[in-house]
């Protein structure tokens, strides 16, 4: 949509959670507006990015979609550093994936940043008949751990965009209130090219963007 739109901010986002909860499908639905039914399991990390408009500001999300299997944990941990936001995903039809949330949360807070903004996503909302985790239960967990919470469906697209946007909005609010400082190392936030351009002379900015196109 905003293909040539320049952005005011760049946020690094993580998508984390157990294997098979639908992390890559959430990302695909968010970026392509389609459900990917022949999705491969993720090895290591895969990337996606999208520019969204949040309250008049253009924010570029650089999303790191991580592998969920336990064996990859030691490697995926190395991707956490400097993330500003995260989608913590479980599968509402699998209690096992819900029970693992505490571990994921500890990892994220410890390795990314204390201030990381996390939204809990109970994915596969469309499979309500097979539900093993109730909305209320997960909602309570989210409250206790200061997480935002949504139930999502990568299949239908329900609440997928909302999850990313809500997380980005909260980060923006924190920047505006001064609670988050984009200048701080490892904040996971950078000024986008639009913001940078205002700081520089027009000629230099032009040269800069021409160079970027060449890459």
């Amino acid at each position: 949509l905003y293909l040539f739109q320049s952005s005011d901010f760049l946020f690094k986002f993580l998508v984390i959670g157990n294997a098979g909860t639908g992390k890559s499908c959430l990302l695909h639905q968010f970026i392509e507006k389609k459900f990917k039914d022949d999705s491969n399991h993720t090895i290591g990390v895969e990337f996606g990015s999208k520019i969204i408009n949040v309250g008049g500001k253009y924010v570029k999300l650089q999303i790191w979609d991580t592998a969920g299997q336990e064996r990859f944990r030691s490697v995926t941990r190395s991707y956490y550093r400097g993330a500003a936001g995260a989608l913590l995903v479980y599968d509402i039809t699998s209690r096992e994936t819900y029970n693992a949330l505490t571990n994921w949360l500890t990892d994220a807070r410890m390795l990314a940043s204390q201030n990381i903004v996390i939204i809990l996503c109970g994915n596969k909302k469309d499979l309500d008949a097979d539900r093993e985790v109730t909305f209320l239960e997960a909602s309570r967990f989210a409250q206790e751990n200061e997480l935002m919470f949504l139930e999502t469906s990568a299949l239908t697209g329900e609440n997928v965009e909302e999850a990313f946007v809500q997380c980005a909005r909260k980060i923006l609010n924190k920047i505006e209130s001064g609670e988050l400082d984009p200048e701080r190392m490892g904040s996971g936030i950078q000024y986008g090219d639009a913001a940078l351009r205002q700081l520089r002379s027009p000629r230099r900015a032009q040269a800069e963007s021409a160079q970027e196109c060449g890459c």
Partner: peptide, 17 residues
Amino acid sequence: VKYLQFAFRWMNNLLMR
């Protein structure tokens, strides 16, 4: 860009992907 970010899968799946 860290090599582990793009080359991990090359090694893990022996280039199958």
